[in-house]
């Protein structure tokens, strides 16, 4: 019973990733694509959680924290590039 529920939720998360992928491909402006990529990252965290429940292992718990950190840093870098044109400034005045 629990296994069926976990598989159903994995499929629903995959569908949500597909919808976000449509926004990445179609999105009229650049910020739409960045937000959709961030959403894909967060959905991947929940997919890893569900898969580690299905496989009954704790080996993937670091991956979830890692994906959260990397999604945050990637989104910050993209938004800084969109707003200022440079990612890392040499000297801030």
């Amino acid at each position: 019973m629990m296994n069926i529920l976990l598989h159903i939720s994995a499929v629903i998360i995959a569908v949500s990733i597909l919808i976000a992928l449509y926004r990445v491909a179609k999105g009229p402006s650049m910020p739409d694509r960045v937000i959709a990529l961030d959403m894909i990252g967060i959905n991947l965290i929940s997919l890893v959680a569900v898969v580690s429940l299905i496989l009954e292992t704790t080996a993937f718990f670091e991956v979830m924290l890692l994906l959260g950190i990397l999604a945050f840093i990637g989104t910050v870098a993209f938004s800084k590039f969109i707003e200022k044109g440079v990612v890392i400034e040499r000297k801030r005045d």
Binding site: I73, V76, K80, E89, R92
Partner: peptide
């Protein structure tokens, strides 16, 4: 991960700092 923490510091501030 340590390098990405320092990259986050570079993103929020600047290279000189």
């Amino acid at each position: 991960m340590t390098a990405s923490a320092i990259v986050l510091l570079m993103l929020a501030y600047d290279l000189e700092m």
